[in-house]
Design a protein around this nucleic acid. Structure first.
Lengths: 255, 255
DNA sequence: TGTCGTGATCTGTGATCACAGTTAGGTTGG
DNA sequence: CCAACCTAACTGTGATCACAGATCACGACA
């Protein structure tokens, strides 16, 4: 005896990043057509992904299929599907005892992740700088502004900063016009999110120090001046400084 | 009333890449400890992945959960799990009508895939060249030899060439010592495999022309001479020439 | 007091069933 | 002879049940 399933749609967490087929200027009916195409399992997957990249699921935290199912108001089945997908992506891991948890990266793993991010996201930044439209650049700049505001508010709007940071980066990557590349980067963020953003939420000081703000500003300037190398450099420093900070916190596994 | 599930282990397709329990020289108890923690769903996933990268599943080919389940002697459930994982990776896709099939890449998608491969695999080649052990280089060279033999045999051993080619590339990538990077590359191959290898199987001529053989040879030389830039160049040409050839076949969707 | 055994309760996995949607094939009416 | 409809057999999705294994707490024994 459990779930009144199909209806529950008040997820407090994320705004689904729909790959919606919807036409640009759709009439009233188009929404319906694209709406129903989404499976419960996919919805749960998006939910968990959002939780991971935003750091609301901490490294080492354990998940229970039944627990999650109950919390989301669905049966165990769609949760199973979602968790399996994330496990396949190594965004979650199953312990020998069958328990599912958010992986705790070792120092070596985290460094490798950072190196890969530098290569892939750096490439995306270069490409984006070459072909971004003025409109896209404006959108990126607006996210930059939102991040700056959230970071410098008193008290700092941590959740807002995390969201704006994500929006800023992905607006940049999407401007490169390479969907597969964006997809690859999303997978990397799924792994980095729990530590990076858990930390950002925990320590407001890092925001105040403002290194991220400076790097973001430099990035926008590079975009406007169409300087791919500078864009890559700014992004690389953003990633590297965040990574250095994380290493300093000692929250990584020794393995 | 159907399947005698747990036992049936005679899948006609491939030799499971077993994480086999048997320890080489283990003391009496050691074997027991590491015993198979592999799930049926994982096994099916590996099966399908192997089918995809080797090109035995052609682009556009449709899959039926029930059909695959029966062919593999398992219930629908593990197949569902495997297919879901691959769909999440976009290595398979679900059509509006709920049918599952191997994606048919558009020309634009294929070109993007090639560009991403050049960046990521090129990076891996450089890193591998820097730190590969002599032993690893020897293994890579042996795969190169196997590929050359399979390609130049009369008649050409197409399946052997495909396998040797895969082994060669991944031995190289693994030598970079970055597991996450290898994982990323595997996902790219999952998408490229169906077209690349379907074609390699279909057209023996490409092997005879020998461009792949030459690039591989140059790669091994670069490894031995510790020349990262040369290694990257050889690999890039290998990838690019194969891609150019595929574009010429016109098997890509117009999209 | 410390330690081992034991059982209740949790875990994910797999099977089976029910269902809604689509597709394809065959038949019937024009 | 062609077209349209209608039925029957498929599709994946989701729910429910059964099960093996692991964990943890409680209790008994040393």
């Amino acid at each position: 005896m459990t779930a009144p399933v199909q209806s529950s749609r008040r997820s407090p967490t994320s705004g689904l990043a729909a790959t919606a087929p919807a036409a640009p200027e759709g009439g009233a009916l188009d929404e319906i057509g694209s709406l129903a195409r989404e499976t419960l399992g996919e919805r749960v997957t998006e939910e968990l992904r959002a939780l991971l990249v935003s750091g609301r699921l901490a490294p080492g935290e354990k998940l229970s299929l039944r627990r999650v199912a109950e919390a989301l108001g669905v049966s165990m089945m769609p949760v199973r599907e979602a968790v399996n997908r994330l496990v396949a992506d190594k965004a979650l891991e199953v312990l020998p005892g069958r328990a599912v948890r958010v992986p705790v990266l070792t120092l070596a793993q985290f460094r490798e992740l950072t190196r890969v991010r530098l290569v892939v996201e750096g490439f995306a930044a270069e490409e984006a700088t070459k072909i971004a439209t003025p409109n896209q650049i404006a959108v990126i700049a607006s996210h930059e502004q939102a991040f700056r505001k959230a970071a410098s508010a008193d008290p700092p709007d941590l959740a807002g900063a995390v969201a704006a940071n994500r929006n800023l980066h992905f607006a940049l990557y999407e401007a490169a016009g390479m969907p597969l590349l964006v997809e690859t980067i999303e997978r990397l963020w799924l792994k980095a999110g729990p530590i990076l953003n858990l930390d950002m939420r925990a320590e407001a000081r890092r925001l105040d120090r403002g290194s991220a703000v400076l790097m973001h500003a430099a990035l926008v300037v590079a975009l406007r001046e169409r300087d791919p190398a500078a864009a890559r450099k700014a992004l690389a420093e953003d990633i590297q400084q965040a990574a250095d900070h994380i290493e300093g916190t000692g929250r990584l596994a020794s393995g």
